[in-house]
Design a protein around this nucleic acid. Structure first.
Length: 274
DNA sequence: CGGGTTACCTGACGGC
DNA sequence: TGCCGTCAGGTAACCC
């Protein structure tokens, strides 16, 4: 579900209204620990009494920084956070975070592909899930043309498969990979190492612009995704290729083509993308 | 190592 | 109405 724009929307929701910095964590209640990776049994003890100091995002990962350790969260495909007042319990609520002042935050994830863990602040890079993570797609200081060039050099895999590889760039998922390739005019199946510097520069711009536009729209809601206040994203109304196989290209009207690339459904325009 | 496939889990949806 | 197959925004463990 959530790619970079959705996670960023959630991050902003936490910061501005769900649990602004300064709030204290009274307790963490684990209803179910067997997510993609088991939630450590001692997670509640390690966060109890800590005050939230801020929120960071790296790719699709969200970090709650506190005066103790940081809570690391990945939403998988169906993870959501919401304000869950007493009485609002739902199927697949796996974790409740109790804040000072009576707020209760619920982590709900029906498919259980997400996970939660605790990391020492400043040592995130040592965490198994973050160790090999590439630069954040919106960080201009680390995700730039030189990085793309050197990372894709000599690679024969389809460029779309490598955009989805979080070691190459962190935050791009199936929706925004397809949309970025359309904006850049590049076919998803093109071997990544055969894209010249000018077209790589176009791809870099396209990735940045599509993610920025999607954040501005509050992300994309297909079915599960909700902001922290339950609100829907609206970028799905601006898809040019994703989920539009057979429909006319927004630019040339030709029916869009579809195929499975790297195990993921993929749509593109065979005239506008080369 | 690089590239490709499959599994993990639940729910929604379409066809019959 | 109901059953069954297929598919879904995620990653990671396998295979060759």
């Amino acid at each position: 579900m959530p790619e970079l724009p959705e996670v960023e929307t959630i991050r902003r929701g936490f910061e501005s209204r769900l649990a602004p910095p300064g709030r204290r964590i009274l307790d963490v209640e684990l209803k179910r620990r067997d997510l993609r990776a088991p939630i450590p049994k001692n997670l509640p003890a390690r966060l109890r009494g800590a005050t939230i100091t801020g929120y960071r995002r790296w790719g699709k990962y969200l970090l709650w920084d506190t005066t103790r350790e940081s809570l690391l969260c990945h939403l998988g495909m169906t993870g959501t956070w919401r304000d869950a007042p007493a009485g609002d319990e739902r199927d697949h609520d796996h974790v409740y975070v109790h804040l000072e002042g009576g707020t209760r935050l619920a982590f709900r994830d029906p498919r259980r592909f997400g996970f939660l863990d605790v990391v020492a602040a400043g040592r995130e890079r040592e965490h198994a899930s973050l160790r090999d993570l590439g630069p954040d797609a919106l960080d201009k200081a680390s995700f730039h043309l030189a990085h793309l060039k050197s990372t894709l050099l000599g690679r024969k895999a389809p460029v779309k498969a490598l955009l989805l590889d979080q070691r190459v760039v962190a935050g791009v998922g199936n929706i925004y990979a397809a949309e970025a390739l359309f904006r850049a005019g590049i076919r998803p199946l093109t071997p990544a190492g055969r894209i010249g510097p000018r077209r790589l520069a176009a791809l870099l711009d396209a990735v940045r612009s599509v993610l920025a536009d999607a954040i501005e729209s509050g992300g994309s809601t297909l079915r599960d995704y909700r902001g922290t206040g339950g609100e829907l994203g609206s970028f799905q109304h601006r898809f040019e290729v994703y989920a539009r196989e057979g429909q006319p290209c927004t630019r040339c009207e030709r029916p869009l083509r579809g195929a499975i690339v790297g195990g993921r459904s993929t749509v593109w325009c065979s005239r506008c993308q080369r």
